[in-house]
Every structure is written in C-alpha cells, then in structure tokens.
Amino acid sequence: MAPPSFILQAHGLARSFSGRSAVNGISLELRRGEVLGFLGPNGAGKSTTMRMLAGNLRPDAGAVRVCDIDLFGNPVAAKARLGYLPETPPLYRDMSVDDYLKFVAKLHRAKSGALDDTKARCGLSEVGKRPIGSLSKGYQQRVGIAQAIIHQPDVIILDEPTAGLDPNQIREIRLLIRELGDNHGVILSTHILSEVESICDRVEILHRGRLVYSGDVDAMRGARAIEAGFKNPPAPGELESIEGVASVEILSPHLFCLRHSPDMDPSEAVIRMASERGWGLQRINPAKSGIEDVFAELTREES
C-alpha cells in the first residue's frame, strides 16, 4: 500500500470565540518530509489553528484529516499519529523528566526503547532524574518537544518551539526540528522571520485568521533585490539601463536598491560598469530577504 501523499489535510477551518472570528477558512496540506512554517503577527490565529489541527479545539466549520483519518470523527486513531507541543508546554512540574516521559510514552503507546532514544535526541540524558519544575526554560522546552515526538508521530505540531530560548538553545532546537522534518511532517508556528528561512521548506502567512500567502521558502528566499553603494553615484537612469534591473530605488544619495527578476542577477554587470565608468563601488550585497518584504506587505495594518 502506497503511503498517502498528504499526511495532514485541513479544509475550511473556521473558529470564533464569543462572536469574534479567530480563524476564518484555513485550508492547508502537509507532506511527509516537509517542514511547514506558520508565520503571522501576534493574534493572527496561529495558535487557534494549531489547536484545531491537534484535535484540542473543535472547529465551527471545516475538517482535518490525519493520514486520511478524520480527526474529529475518529479522534483516538488520528491522535495516535499526532504529536503536539502547545504554546505552554504541558508539563507536570513535580514529576521527574524520566517519570513524565514514561507516562507520556504509555499514554501514546510508544515503543519500548523510545524513552532513551528521545532523551538522547532532545539532549535530556543528563537531567532524567531531576524534577521538571527545577529545570531551566530551555530544558523544559526540550521536555515539551520530547513529549511531542516520543511516539514517532507522522505529524508533529509545534507552537512557537523556540519562544523564550537563548540563541544557543534556539540553534539546537532548530537543528532538531530540521532533523525531524526528514522523516516526519512538521508544522511550526513562529513570528521570527529568520526561523522560517533557516528551517522551513514552505511557509504559510496568516493574517487576521486567514491565509494570505503560501509558498516555498526557497522561492521567497531568492534575493530579488541588491543594494549597491557608490562613491560617485551615477544617474539612476544609468543603473536602470543595466540588463536585468527592473527598477531602481534611491535609498540615500550614495546607496541604491536595484530590483531584479529572480533568474537574472545584475551584480556582475554592475561591478563591471562601476569599474569602467569610475563610480567608485563601495559595497554591493543582496538586499533584505524576500520573506520580510512579503510579510510586511501582507500583514500591514490598514491605518
């Protein structure tokens, strides 16, 4: 039997809280081996959507299928294939890490041996005997991730997995998520743009309860603009005439932003012409990432 192509499908999810719509008609799909980033400003509906995807919240409308099992029609079978880390890790603070993970493993009917594997994977081997409440935030977050992956679920849903961690811990957690993305499907939410760029394959941008953008991170990442600074700046018209440059924006008298199509990078031509015509090139570099542009544009509040 061939595995289903999508391990998670959501269709037309909608949910409101006491009359105020939080999520309005979200549909998405996730494949195995994919890390999907949920990006959006605070209050965009990320957590609400993830709670529904994890079967913790019943949607007003719409359906979720996990590995082709209806999450709300057959919750027990569907939840066996889900791992979920909510915004606040669901930890029993008075239990030791070992006891807690053993309990979770039993709840999820994880394979024997899963405990040690998961602990090693999440870097928890050293703290097994300690009560969870005495651990640092970074370790608590790792325990939270460990409980979500201990049963090797097909779909892993992580709500802001790196929130509140220091830069080193963030890097470790990102590496772990990237690794998980090879064999599972991962959905993670964040409002950190660089996080999406560094670990996600695909990004969905949410704004006011709706999906406003969906696309490959690689396509977005491809710098579509370069910044160039000159000591003796040429007329903007001269820059515009360079092959591949679509438009020129003057950032300061000496600094220009050159927009171009993704498949045509004019950097080389700019360098050549700068040396030929004595513009005195001072710097040339890709402009800020595409994601940032897209995000700012799509989630701008109407004022």
Binding site: N56, Y84, L107
Partner: peptide
C-alpha cells in the same frame, strides 16, 4: 490551570 490538559487531549485516549 497549569495548562497540562492538552497533553491528555492530544493523546490517543477518549
């Protein structure tokens, strides 16, 4: 209160 209910609600139990 401790927000640990999601652990039980996400587990394959009724």
């Amino acid at each position: 209160r401790n927000q640990t209910l999601p652990l039980l609600l996400s587990a394959p139990i009724s």
